[in-house]
Structures are given as C-alpha cells and as structure tokens.
C-alpha cells in the first residue's frame, strides 16, 4: 500500500520560507499570489496490513512535529 503524508505548518505559525518563496514568485512577475505556505510530502510504501493506528503513530512520533505542524494521510 502506498501512502502520501502531507505535513504542513499549523495556521498562525509564521512561515519565513513560504514568505521568501512568495516574494520570489513576485520577482518572477507572477501576480495575484496571495500567500505561500511551504510544507513536506512523504511517500511511504507500507504493508497492506498496516493499521491506521500505526500510521497515525508514525506521523505523530516522527514525520510531523505536532507543536508546529499538522499532517494529512492519503492512501494511493
């Protein structure tokens, strides 16, 4: 089973990298970009028997720092 795990900064957490990317898009002449938030995406190949609980554990214990980040799991 393939998983895609998206890790994004929580709303309200400042994202200086996203702001720099936003600025660079403006420098390239792209107009109308209201905001940019940078995040991470992990692709995992896991055994079909992997439980939701285990996937949640992987996210909470390592892939995301839940002090500052949210995560979302997609099953491919």
């Amino acid at each position: 089973m393939k998983l895609r795990i998206f890790v994004t900064l929580k709303p309200g957490v400042l994202d200086p990298q996203g702001r720099a990317i936003h600025h660079a898009l403006g420098s390239l002449g792209f107009e109308g970009v209201e905001d940019v938030r940078a995040g991470k995406m992990f692709e995992l190949e896991v055994a079909d028997s992997t439980t939701d609980e285990a996937i949640d554990g992987m996210c909470r214990q390592l892939l995301a720092n839940t002090v500052i980040e949210n995560f979302r799991v997609e099953r491919a």
Partner: peptide, 11 residues
C-alpha cells in the same frame, strides 16, 4: 522541553 525551534525569521 516544550516548543520548537524554527527557521530564523530573517532566513
């Protein structure tokens, strides 16, 4: 310890 250390505000 609580909290997190993020990228410097000035990058």
């Amino acid at each position: 310890l609580p909290g997190a250390l993020m990228r410097n505000a000035g990058l």
